[in-house]
Structures are given as structure tokens and as C-alpha cells.
Design a protein around this nucleic acid. Structure first.
Length: 609
RNA sequence: CGGGGCGUAGCUCAGCUUGGUAGAGCGCUUGCUUCGGGAGCAAGAGGUCGCAGGUUCGAAUCCUGUCGCCCCGACCA
């Protein structure tokens, strides 16, 4: 038989002629070319080593990991290492192709870099030291050092600087889809945080910031198209660029309860940011002091909640003081409103605060402030300690705070009158219910899985690695650089986190291993069922539909259970019962009930939409 | 890396406290009966009990070491 592929089969005679001439050519060099009878047609489930299990593997914590394992998409090899089984590889390839098509359409060009990279490049950029344990380091037989690439900025800059000399060659955007390895201290959640994973990483180079901005927006639009095509509910959020460096960056998150990131999204507005990066502003004016400062005993009440309950004052009428190490030694006190949380990333970025952020030792706090951590406050704080207030804390009047004396607090405290801060700035974590930073809408939190991240890196890597091109006036210019990543393998898991039910995975059409699954009932007994199934299978394939035939000879119950678990969007059941009235049974994976449709290709195609 | 837990059949686990020669369910193979939401009966195959030492007449079981895996925390384009 002919092989049903994704495209209509070539007309017989034509392919026969081609095959014959090929055979003749072969014959010139090989006396006995083997006859080509059939090509493999692995669209029959009997040809896929699909091992579905009823029981959930013991080490899988999140739904996507459990379902991928149970449905036979992946098999674990070691911590954070997974084999993609044939059915899983089809999904991976679908995602990969969507990404590739949209990248190409956006004008990016594909390349392929080595996964193993020489240490020299990383020493040049300075990241050989800063990357730390996350980077898997290797030595070859000569003792030369390498790493298994966790990312490819160094390699691409090195590659490009050899060939690109002129402004005429810029801008361009070059990408690859590659296996990366990051030696996570604690790989978990299966594919979602594996150590080895598949990633699309793109790098663009520009003569100036305007050109970079244009390409950044171009990539942003391409990412939006990619995520729409994947069929997932997602948000693009402003983000912190982390240790990769650079100025502007946005993350693309698939919304899902199991997501590791918390997102602040404005309801009724357009603002969206990772909470790490969400800004907060001062709102309104500080009221005038009305209460007198007075010291009250608060024995054993150390936390803001305890004090607030004890004194019967709202949590947001209290100022708490956190003490951290200062840049270059010493301590810095940070004043926050009682109900607010410190955003450690914002704090670490403050020029006076040590980065990374380190909380002061309790003993040192006791020595400097003369009180335990639970009783610190701005009133009477040591004068030589820099006191930085978050905007919201700086806004308070008549507040409660620690008295820098064990078991004592102040009420009716006021800035200026009773104490002072040297600076008010944005240091807190945004909170649910806050007004959106742009003034439109109210903040609500969502959990998200980071599926993509776009960055404007600027000159960080081009400068460190000495990449320059000549401009029109023959001056050497360091190009601006952008980078754009998509976690291809992670997206497969992210989609499942968002799209599943009690019976299994619910794939969107675009990335399902097949769009249609044909389930023949009793094909071994009924010639009519077998014939109708084979015919529909061949017809759908010829029509360019990706179709699979469950020819494993399972009983109906287990066949349906597997169909649901594997998550194929469209199911066509063919049985003697239906055929008696010239009907197939059709069910959408999301649909509640099955329905009978005419037993024709057209009727099935109509259901696919 | 700190704290905790687990390694016994392909998978999920019991057995270990109190040492005595290896178990269940699922899956797999064969046969018969079944056949529209994970079938029933019968007969089978399958395990150096993670690995290495030690104690003992005897170790899955006790002791030591080691490797692997999982969870919490810290960490993380």
C-alpha cells in the first residue's frame, strides 16, 4: 500500500517512473539493489511503543509529568534527563516547527551550534566564573576545559565576530534549536525543570539601539504568534533580566496553577509583569501627624501580625524595619509597611545595598540596634545606619513601629517629626489588590510557566568579547545585541499543565501527535470494520490530515482510556453497530458526549473544522 | 549544599522491628470464554532484594561505607 503521509501521495505512475530511474542509477554501481517494496508507515499505534500505565509513577509530582509518563510520551533516564518516546517526539517536533516557521517568517535565519563549548569563550565574557555550578564543565583527553552549553551568547558572538566586519552586514537575527544542559541543583517537575532540555535561542545584532528595539518588537510579535498558534492561554510580562544581563526584557508565560512564577496582571488594564519586576509607586500625599508619639509595652510580640493584633491596629498602619548588609560593608535598614514584603531583587539593585542581598546576622542587629529583630523601628534607630524607606512606608502617618528596645513599640510615630529616612524608593513586592502601576486597573496574581524570554542585551557580550564593525565613517562600533529564547521542551509540559482533565491530556490540534485517532471496534472479527477503518485512515492521510489508527487490537474500554490519556483531539470510532446504519461515531476530546455522523470522509473532515 | 525519606519483578508496593533461603496487585506470555469505557477463568515467564564490605552457621532483614533517586529549603536565562 502507499504510505499515507502528511501530504497527498504522488500519483502512482509518476513515482514509479522516478523509482525506476533511481533503481537504474543504483544498478550502475551496485549489482543487486534491494527492491523497495514499502516504506515504513508509523502512523499505526501498533508501530509505536506506547506504554500507557494506569498507575502514576511514584516520582512524578506535577500533572504534566505524571501524564507524560503515564501516556508514554517520556521515560526518565536520570535526574532531569528524559527520553522522548516516538509519540512524545512528534509533539516536540510540532512545537519546534511552529517556532521555526514563525522565526523564519519574522526574518530570522537558522543555524546549528555545538552543544559543547570551549572554556576560553566563557573566560572571555567573564561568565566562566560567574555561572557557577549550574554549568556542567568537562575536560577532553588533552585536559582542555569545556562546558556543555547552558546558553550560546559566547559562541554566537565569537562566530559572528569572525565574519561580520561591516555595518552593511547588520542587522541580522540568527537562531538555533538546540539541546542545552543546566545542572540545576534540584531538577524537578519532570520536563518543566529538566537539566537537559530543548531550546530555541536567537541572537540579533544591530548598529544602534533603535534597530535593536525594532527587532525586539519584531520578535515580540513573532512570539505572540507562536503562543497563539500553540493554542495556550498566555501573558507577555515585563521581567527582570537576571544574570544574563541587559536592560529590557519580557517573559512569555503559559498560565497554569503549577507555574513556578508569580505574575502581577492588571485586571481591566494592560499592565503585566513578573512580581519580581513589577514596580510600585507612591500614591497620594502623606497625611499630617495627629497622634502623639508614645511608647507601649508589647511583651513577646515580635511579628507585625502579633503587634497589630495586640494593639488592635491594622497591619498597614505599621512600619517594619529589615536590616541588610550594605554595599562595601556595614548595614542598611529598609522600612516597609507592615503588610508588605521586601522585593529582594529591587533591594539588591539599590547602589547602597550589597548584591546579592544578604540579611544581617541577628547578633549584629542586636549589637547595633540594641534590640532583637522583632523590635526595630525608625524612631531612635542608630543615626549612622542608612535608612531607606519603601514609598508605601514613607507615606504613612501616625504609624506603629518597634522602639529599638526589646518588648517595646511606639504608636503615633511620624516621619520628619519623630524620625527620618534618607531616601524613599521602590523596594516592595507588588501586592494583589494594588492599583496597577500604570494607573489602569487592579493587580491580580496569576501563576505562570515561563515558556519564552526576550532580552535587549545591549553591548554586554559584544563589548566583553571585542566584536566591532566599521560604520560608514570607518569607525569601529560595538554592535547592540538582543537574545530571544523559547523553552521548546518545557512548552510541551506547560501546555499539559494548562490543558488536561481527569482522563488525561487534552492537546490543542496544533501540537497533538495526531489530530485524529481512529478506533476500530472488533476489527479482527468484522471485515467491514477493518475495511472501513483502513479506508478512512488512508483517505484522511491522503487529504493531508495527520491521523493514527489504533490497530493494536485492544478491547474498546482500554482503547478509549488510552485515547483520552494520550489526548488526541478528534476520535472516530468505527464499529459494526454504526456501520449498520452507515455511521461513524465522532467525539472531540473536550466534548462531553460522542455523536453519530455519516460514515464518510466528508463528514469527518467537516468535524475537524 | 543543609534537613528528611526511599532503593525488593517492567510499574505500584508489602516483607525488614523480632535474621531461617522471595511475595501481592497491575503489566507480560499461552489457552479458553468474552468484546462499546482499562474483561473472566486457567496455566506460565520474570527478581545477583542498588552496590561493596562487615557481623552471623545463615542477611532483603543487623552494622559500616558508597552510589542512585525523591521531598522540603536555599538556588535558578
Amino acid at each position: 500500500m502507499t504510505c499515507p503521509g502528511p501530504f497527498p501521495a504522488r500519483p502512482g505512475p509518476k513515482s514509479f517512473v522516478r523509482m525506476t530511474s533511481l533503481a537504474k542509477q543504483c544498478h550502475r554501481y551496485n549489482p543487486a539493489p534491494p527492491p523497495i517494496l514499502t516504506r515504513a508507515c508509523p502512523m499505526r499505534l501498533s508501530r509505536f511503543p506506547i506504554a500507557t500505565t494506569k498507575e502514576t509513577p511514584a516520582d512524578a509530582q506535577v500533572i504534566s509529568h505524571q501524564l507524560m509518563q503515564r501516556a508514554g510520551y517520556i521515560r526518565k533516564l536520570g535526574a532531569g534527563l528524559y527520553t522522548w518516546m516516538p509519540i512524545g517526539k512528534r509533539v516536540l517536533a510540532k512545537i519546534e516547527n511552529i517556532v521555526r516557521e514563525e522565526m523564519n517568517a519574522a526574518g530570522a535565519v537558522e543555524c546549528f551550534m555545538p552543544s559543547i563549548q570551549p572554556a576560553e569563550l566563557w573566560q572571555e565574557s567573564g561568565r566562566w566564573e560567574t555561572m557557577g555550578e549550574e554549568m556542567l564543565r568537562l575536560k577532553d583527553r588533552h585536559g582542555a576545559e569545556f562546558c556543555y552549553g547552558p546558553t550560546h551568547e559566547e559562541v554566537i558572538v565569537h562566530t559572528v565576530r569572525q565574519d561580520v566586519r561591516s555595518y552593511k552586514q547588520l542587522p541580522f537575527n540568527i537562531y538555533q534549536i538546540q539541546t542545552k544542559f543546566r545542572d540545576e541543583r534540584r531538577p524537578r517537575f519532570g520536563i518543566m525543570r529538566a537539566r537537559e532540555f530543548l531550546m530555541k535561542d536567537a541572537y540579533s545584532f544591530h548598529m544602534d539601539a533603535e534597530s535593536l528595539e525594532a527587532e525586539y518588537q519584531n520578535m515580540r510579535a513573532a512570539y505572540v504568534r507562536i503562543f497563539i498558534r500553540l493554542g495556550v492561554d498566555f501573558r507577555a510580562v515585563t521581567a527582570d533580566s537576571g544574570n544574563i544581563g541587559g536592560a529590557k526584557s519580557e517573559e512569555f508565560h503559559v498560565l497554569a496553577g503549577a507555574g513556578e512564577d508569580l505574575l502581577a496582571v492588571a485586571e481591566g488594564g494592560s499592565y503585566a509583569a513578573n512580581v519580581e519586576a513589577a514596580v510600585t509607586h507612591a500614591v497620594g500625599e502623606r497625611s499630617q501627624p495627629t497622634a502623639a508619639l508614645s511608647k507601649v509595652a508589647t511583651p513577646g510580640k515580635k511579628t507585625c501580625e502579633q503587634v497589630s493584633n495586640f494593639l488592635k491596629v491594622p497591619l498597614d498602619a505599621k512600619v517594619k524595619l529589615l536590616v541588610v548588609k550594605a554595599e562595601g560593608g556595614g548595614l542598611v535598614a529598609i522600612a516597609l509597611r507592615g503588610d508588605h514584603q521586601l522585593n529582594e531583587i529591587k533591594a539588591a539593585k539599590h547602589p547602597k545595598i550589597a548584591s546579592p542581598l544578604i540579611m544581617a546576622e541577628p547578633a549584629e542587629v542586636q549589637r547595633v540596634f540594641g534590640a532583637e529583630v522583632g523590635y526595630l523601628g525608625p524612631v531612635g534607630a542608630p543615626a549612622d545606619i542608612l535608612l531607606i524607606a519603601d514609598h508605601a512606608a514613607a507615606q504613612l502617618a501616625d504609624f506603629v513601629c518597634g522602639a529599638n528596645e526589646n518588648d517595646q513599640h511606639y504608636t503615633g510615630a511620624n516621619w520628619q517629626r519623630d524620625c527620618a529616612f534618607t531616601e524613599a524608593c521602590d523596594l516592595r513586592m507588588i501586592a494583589e489588590g494594588d492599583a496597577s502601576p500604570d494607573g489602569i486597573g487592579t493587580i491580580k496574581f496569576y501563576r505562570g510557566i515561563e515558556g519564552g524570554h526576550i532580552f535587549q542585551l545591549g553591548q554586554k557580550y559584544t563589548k566583553a568579547m571585542g566584536f566591532t564593525v566599521l560604520n560608514e565613517s570607518q569607525q569601529a562600533v560595538t554592535p547592540e545585541m538582543g537574545c530571544y529564547g523559547i523553552g521548546v521542551s518545557r512548552l510541551a509540559a506547560a501546555v499539559i499543565e494548562q490543558s488536561h482533565d481527569a482522563n488525561g491530556i487534552v492537546w490543542p490540534d496544533a501540537i497533538a501527535p495526531w489530530r485524529v485517532l481512529i478506533c476500530p471496534i472488533g476489527a479482527d472479527k468484522s471485515a467491514a470494520v477493518k475495511e472501513a477503518s483502513e479506508k478512512l485512515y488512508a483517505d484522511l492521510a491522503a487529504a493531508g490530515i495527520e491521523v493514527a489508527l489504533d490497530d493494536r487490537g485492544q478491547r474498546p474500554g482500554s482503547m478509549f482510556a488510552d485515547a483520552d490519556l494520550i489526548g488526541i483531539p478528534h476520535r472516530v470510532v468505527i464499529g459494526d453497530k454504526g456501520l449498520a446504519t452507515q455511521q461513524f461515531e465522532y467525539k472531540h476530546r473536550k466534548g462531553a458526549a460522542a455523536e453519530m455522523i455519516p460514515a464518510t470522509l466528508e463528514a469527518v473532515l467537516a468535524k475537524l473544522g
